[in-house]
Amino acid sequence: MSRRPYRVVLIVPTGIGAAIGGYAGDALPVARAIAQVADTLITHPNVLNGAQLYWPLTNAYYVEGYGLDQVAAGRWGLRPVHQNRIGLVLDQAIEPELKLRHLQAADAARATLGLELTDYVVTDAALGVELQTANSGATWGTIQNPDSLLRAAERLITQGVADAIAVVARFPDDLGSEALQQYRQGQGVDPLAGAEAVISHLVVRTFQIPCAHAPALSPLPIDSALSPRSAAEELGYTFLPCVLAGLSQAPQFINQAPAQANDLWADQIDAVVVPATACGGAAVMSLSQTGARIIAVAENQTTMQASASALGIEALQVNSYLEAIGALVTHRAGISGAALHPLLPSIKPL
């Protein structure tokens, strides 16, 4: 038994072609495994979202990326909840039949999962999602009408009394693109990911409320070469179920006072697990200053070239997530990892 709760942050940034976690919620098994050795796992929607697939981890906090950056910097804390009322924002640009599919997904979550949703809002303008790939190979995106998104979210919060916001934006269909073909084969970089992050970041930054996004896309033709890592996103008409499941019990963001016993702040985080080449995000850089153990996983290759050592961050380098989990177990138990290797040199003078 630990002397205090052991809390781990798992980060797999979206849109950087992570070999594990860069596809259809394919880092979820990693999250499930870490949740077995941690009292609390703090991670973000890209890790837990598998479109039609998700897994109810009772000790996992579903924390949007911008919010996670603020928590890591010590500006916000996390307060667990029993239930969030979810407000649904639908992009005006979604065509009628696809919109109906999303409303039916929302109704299914209410009837079959018992989730609490407010009435929904359609944006007063098409959000206008634009995608791009940067020189680094990461995908980014912008939206033409962010104010329309924020107006819709505000209505849900003030009139619908929503505690969390689910956004569905119409994304470009590009059936013939090489990027999409590669993605379906479990390779390359998710062409949608960067824009998705921008959408939820806008809502979280403005309203300090849990938020997650599901893209609205036309169904793809069946592909016999579909990668297992990408398969979860081709099971149905929407990506919405996992978002609603995650938001239903996502922790609320808090400022300093008043404090409650179960609140979680950055100085209570014990470890951070991150791909070895992707240590240059705000959350990792902030948490590297708190005393949390940074564990960098080499096998999870990405398009980034930002190692911990190059950034002056002290980190434990491991090859695989299995090794990372072993490192978490020894850390939690207060065991030196060196003692588990066959060769243990004698202690030397300082």
């Binding site: 950087i16 990461a138 970041h201 240059g280 930002a306 950034l311 002056g312 961050i313």
Partner: peptide, 30 residues
Amino acid sequence: LKSSAEELRQDIEATLQTWGDPLRWAVVQV
């Protein structure tokens, strides 16, 4: 590049503030 990650993070955010309000950023190459 700065000597500490904290110094670098602050410098990144200050630099991005000259372009607008930072929403999302990452060091992509060192």
